[in-house]
Simulated assay, not measured.
Amino acid sequence: MRADAKKNRSQILTVARDVVTEHGADVSMRDIARRAGVGLATLLRHFPTREALFEALLCTNLDALAQKADDRETSISADDALLSWFRELVAFAQSYRGVVAMMAAAHANPDSALYASCAAVHSAGARLLLRAQEEGTARADMNGDDLFALVTALGWAVDQPSFASRADHLVHLITSAILTNRPGNDAGKATP
């Protein structure tokens, strides 16, 4: 790739990251190109579809989340590993409004540009859950699909302005329901 093409690609990704964080995943490709200082044709040459652009933006983050899960599998307790990974995934979903819908759609579509990264995150979460189940700290009646569904549902909820301020509380409620045998689990206690 020529130096100017690399520079354009980098500029597009930098601007797209900011614009998506600011306005959500429904932002127009034309607006991203304008704000990046390139023509729409240049943007489309690098990223022929909206999904291709989001793949480039999101895959790095999703792959990092999968790697963090791998790192935590043996470095900290199973329940702490699952809890911290779950929180990071929800925080990631909050940082890119609209990403949860894309992840949920990509999860079941092998033709999606996001499929491989979503599958890696799903698999990583499933491994963390299984480890916590084997240690007896997580409920036994759920699997990786259930965990992914809960993360995406919670990600959707905290993406809504009316629930965003309660994100930490909602994460706590969901993780308390998953990690039922965790020492100090205060599930059932009233929280304002």
Rank of each mutant, 00 (worst) to 15 (best):
M1P: 11
R2L: 10
A3W: 01
D4T: 00
K6G: 02
N8K: 03
N8G: 01
R9C: 02
Q11Y: 01
Q11L: 09
Q11R: 12
I12R: 04
I12H: 04
I12W: 02
L13G: 00
V15T: 15
R17M: 02
E22W: 10
H23W: 08
D26V: 01
V27Q: 00
V27W: 00
M29W: 07
R30L: 15
R30S: 13
R30P: 00
R30Q: 14
R30H: 11
I32H: 03
A33V: 06
R34D: 05
R35Y: 03
A36Y: 04
L40M: 09
L40Y: 14
A41C: 05
T42G: 09
L43E: 07
L43A: 08
H46W: 06
F47A: 05
P48F: 00
A52I: 01
A52Y: 04
L53E: 04
L53K: 01
A56P: 05
A56E: 14
L57Q: 05
L58Q: 07
C59S: 15
T60C: 14
L62G: 13
A66K: 07
A69D: 09
A69C: 12
E73F: 07
E73W: 08
T74Y: 10
S75A: 15
S75Q: 11
I76G: 05
I76Y: 05
A78L: 00
D79A: 08
D80T: 07
A81D: 02
A81S: 10
A81P: 01
L83F: 07
R87Y: 03
Y96F: 15
Y96K: 13
R97I: 01
V99L: 15
V100F: 02
V100M: 13
A104P: 02
A104F: 11
A105C: 03
A106S: 14
H107G: 14
A108L: 10
A108C: 04
A108R: 09
A108M: 01
P110S: 11
A113G: 15
L114P: 04
L114E: 09
A116M: 10
A119Y: 02
A119V: 09
A120F: 03
V121M: 12
H122F: 13
G125P: 07
A126C: 01
A126T: 05
A126L: 08
R127F: 03
L129V: 09
L130A: 12
L130M: 11
Q133W: 00
Q133A: 02
E134R: 05
G136S: 00
G136H: 01
G136P: 03
T137G: 00
A140N: 04
D145I: 06
D146G: 04
L150M: 15
T152Q: 09
A153D: 11
A153Q: 11
L154E: 08
L154R: 10
G155N: 08
W156C: 11
W156G: 12
A157I: 08
V158D: 03
Q160D: 14
F163R: 04
A164D: 03
S165G: 06
A167K: 06
H169L: 08
L170T: 03
V171C: 12
H172K: 08
L173I: 14
L173V: 14
L173Y: 13
I174Y: 01
T175C: 09
T175Y: 09
T175L: 15
S176R: 10
R182W: 14
P183M: 10
G184H: 10
D186A: 13
A187G: 13
A187H: 15
A187N: 12
G188A: 11
A190T: 08
A190D: 09
T191N: 03
T191L: 14
